[in-house]
Design a binder for these strands. Structure first.
Length: 355
DNA sequence: TAGGCCATCTGGTCCT
DNA sequence: AGGACCAGATGGCCTA
C-alpha cells in the first residue's frame, strides 16, 4: 500500500491518530492490534451511542476552541494547512467514527464468512466439525467448478481419479487427503510421481525441490503463502505422465483442456499448481481402494437446496444402481448426513462409474 | 514451541 | 462526508 507516502506527508488526520494513540485510546474498544478476542457488539453499540451523545454536547465547546485558535494573534501565523487543535470533542468524534468503521468492517467480514460457509457446504468435502480453511475452500471450489464445467463441455463422465485430480490441484496435502478420503481414493493412486519410500525424498518442511519438476517454493521460503506444503505439479507434466498408463480415461476428460483450449485451469494456480509431499514422486498405480486415512471424518456433501442442480448436471436423474458397489453409506457415516445428501453422494459416485 | 488460521483493528483509497 | 473495500498488523487459539 501507499502507507509510506502518507508517513512522509502526514495529514491532519494522521496527526490526529498520533495524538490519539494514547493509553486512554488503547484501553478503549478499538484498541490497536486486533486480537482474536471477540467484542461484545451490544456493549459496543451502547458505548457508541453514549459517545455520540457526548459528541453533541461537546460540539459547542469545540467551536469555541476553534475560535480561540483563530483569534490568537499573539503568535505569528503558521503557513500551510491549518492544523486543527485536537479538542476533546474531536477526539470523541474520531473515536465514534473509528468505532463505526470497525463495526461495519466486522459485519462485512461476517458476511464474507457466511458466504464462505455457504460455499463450504456445496463443495465436495464438507464437515461441520473440521472445516476447510478459507483459502482451501476457495481453491477447492474453483477446482470443482472447473471440473464440473469440463464434464459439461466434454459431455463425458470422467473417471473418479481424474475428477479427484482436478479437484486437488493446488490444494495442500491435508486437503488433498480429505478430498481423496471423501471420494474413497487413496491419494497415492491419483497423484503423480510416487516413490515407494517417499519420506526419503521429502525436502525439509516443504522445500519443494524435485528434479525435473516445476517447483513452487514453499511458504516457508516464500513469506506470505499459507498452508504448506504446496509443492509442485505442472499440469502438462502430470498428464503427460499419465498418458499411456492404465488410466487411459484420463485423456478424454482432460484432453484439449490442459493442453489447449477449454476452460482454462489458469496454471499456475496461486500458489502455483502444486501437489507434492506424499504424492509428488513417481506415479504409482494401485487399485482404487477405500484405504484412505480414516482419521478424517469427512464426507461428500451437497448442500440442501443446491442439490437438484447438481443432479441435473450429471444427467443421471437419480441414484444409479451401481453406486451400491461404492458403499456409499459407509462413506457417509461420520456425521449422519441426511438421506437426501446420501442420494446426492450416490449420484456423484454413479457418474464416475457409469462411463 | 513454531506455524497455520482466524478475528479484529486500522489507515488508505475509491466511489457515491 | 461517509461507506465499501482492501491489505497490513497484531494477538489469540489450535495442532503437530
Amino acid at each position: 500500500m501507499t502507507r509510506s507516502v502518507r508517513e512522509e506527508q502526514p495529514t491532519t488526520e494522521c496527526e490526529e491518530q498520533q495524538e490519539l494513540h494514547s493509553p486512554e485510546m488503547e484501553s478503549g474498544v478499538g484498541a490497536g492490534g486486533g486480537g482474536g478476542g471477540g467484542v461484545d457488539e451490544e456493549e459496543e453499540e451502547d458505548h457508541l451511542h453514549h459517545l455520540e451523545e457526548e459528541e453533541e454536547e461537546d460540539d459547542e465547546e469545540d467551536d469555541e476552541d476553534d475560535e480561540e485558535d483563530e483569534d490568537g494573534e499573539n503568535k505569528p501565523k503558521r503557513r500551510g494547512p491549518k492544523k486543527k487543535k485536537m479538542t476533546k470533542a474531536r477526539i470523541q468524534r474520531f473515536k465514534v467514527r473509528r468505532m463505526k468503521a470497525n463495526a461495519r468492517e466486522r459485519n462485512r467480514m461476517h458476511g464474507l464468512n457466511d458466504a464462505l460457509e455457504s460455499l463450504r457446504k456445496v463443495v465436495p468435502c464438507y464437515s461441520k466439525t473440521q472445516k476447510l480453511s478459507k483459502i482451501e475452500t476457495l481453491r477447492l471450489a474453483k477446482n470443482y467448478i472447473w471440473a464440473l464445467s469440463e464434464i459439461l463441455r466434454s459431455g463425458k463422465a470422467p473417471d473418479l481419479m481424474s475428477f479427484v485430480q482436478a479437484l486437488c490441484k493446488g490444494l495442500s496435502q491435508p486437503t488433498t487427503n480429505l478430498v481423496a478420503g471423501c471420494l474413497q481414493l487413496n491419494p497415492r493412486t491419483f497423484l503423480p510421481e510416487q516413490t515407494p519410500d517417499l519420506s526419503a525424498h521429502l525436502p525439509p518442511t516443504g522445500a519443494a525441490a524435485y528434479p525435473g519438476h516445476f517447483s513452487y517454493q514453499s511458504p516457508g521460503l516464500t513469506p506470505g503463502l499459507p498452508s504448506p506444503p504446496y509443492g509442485s505439479m505442472d499440469p502438462s507434466h502430470i498428464f503427460h505422465q499419465v498418458k499411456g498408463q492404465p488410466y487411459g480415461s484420463l485423456e478424454p476428460f482432460f484432453d484439449g483442456v490442459m493442453v489447449s483450449e477449454g476452460p482454462s485451469f489458469d496454471p499456475p494456480l496461486s500458489p502455483p499448481l502444486s501437489i507434492n509431499g506424499n504424492f509428488s514422486s513417481s506415479f504409482k498405480h494401485e487399485p482404487v481402494a477405500a484405504d484412505y486415512d480414516k482419521s478424517f471424518s469427512f464426507s461428500v456433501h451437497y448442500g440442501g437446496g443446491g442439490a437438484p442442480g447438481h443432479a441435473a448436471m450429471y444427467g443421471n436423474g437419480g441414484p444409479n444402481p451401481r453406486c451400491g458397489e461404492l458403499q456409499v453409506d459407509g462413506l457417509m457415516g461420520f456425521e449422519g448426513h441426511s438421506h437426501h445428501e446420501r442420494m446426492m453422494n450416490a449420484q456423484l459416485n454413479a457418474i464416475f462409474h457409469d462411463s
